[in-house]
Amino acid sequence: MVFDQSSLLLQQLVNGITLGGVYALIAVGYTMVYGVIQLINFAHGEIYMLAAFVALTLITQCHIPFFASFFITIGICGCLGVVLDYIAYRPIRKSPRLAALITAIGMSIFLQNLALILWGGQIHSFPQDVLPKIFTKIAINFSDVIVTWLEVFILCVTVCSMFILHYIITRTKIGIAMRAISQDKVTASLMGIPVNRVISFTFFIGSALGGVAGILVGIYYNAVFPTMGYVAGIKAFAAAVLGGIGSVPGAMLGGWVLGITEVLGAGYFSSEYRDGISYAVMILVILFKPSGLIGKPLPQKV
């Protein structure tokens, strides 16, 4: 099949939007946790990886249907995030930030190697017969631009998750509590907000969304391996920084911008430096506009 230039570009855009949506889902987890406790949760990428493994195990070993295991996995991942906060981050919440950062790195390595021990280092894939048949069918075929139902599904899940999240943050009581804590933890606790419980909830939501992303990517590339969370985690962090860390709409925007940039860069510039594009974007944003696309500049406290 011969692609002409414009349909190639369109096809790349479709891939970029799919990938960007996944980055956005992971980035939201980073940015929410950063918003409430100012910590880069390095272990977030590992939760994304564990989600893919848990879903794979549920489907292939326990023979639970796809959509049921999808929701069970999301629940498990959310709980995992809460446990992570409880055993690793809560005890050192009053320590210097460097200590929290090192703990996060330690947890990330721990979880990644735990997955390596439990599932082995080889690349696992979802057997084709367990996934819904419709995923591989073509949804839209517009002058050689092919969009599969899987891509439509990923986009729908991403957008729905974003809307649910937006609703939780802006309309519900716990969302308001989250925003209050991100403004000022001490004052929020004086106003009667159960700070630790709200932080746990934040971890739950962030990790659940990371879990959604993990399953989606696991199916999309049909490859699940222990180091998948490390690269994706950093790229999602790059997306969060690009949008402005601490800002949820920023993370969504950053995810899409980064996904599209990466796919176009890999297509037209150099596919070997695919990961490098994300790192370079991240470094440039941190150096020249640390507040990101739509974040507020941070005042320097003396």
Binding site: A88, P91, I92, S95, P96, A99, A100, I102, T103, I105, G106, M107, S108, I109, F110, L111, Q112, N113, L114, L116, I117, G121
Partner: peptide, 21 residues
């Protein structure tokens, strides 16, 4: 499991930060 020895390093980082930063 050769590479999984990093698991120990991860635990060391977490425990040191918690007990003896």
């Amino acid at each position: 499991l050769m590479n999984s020895r990093y698991l120990i390093y991860g635990i060391i980082l977490v425990i040191m930060m918690r007990l003896r930063p």
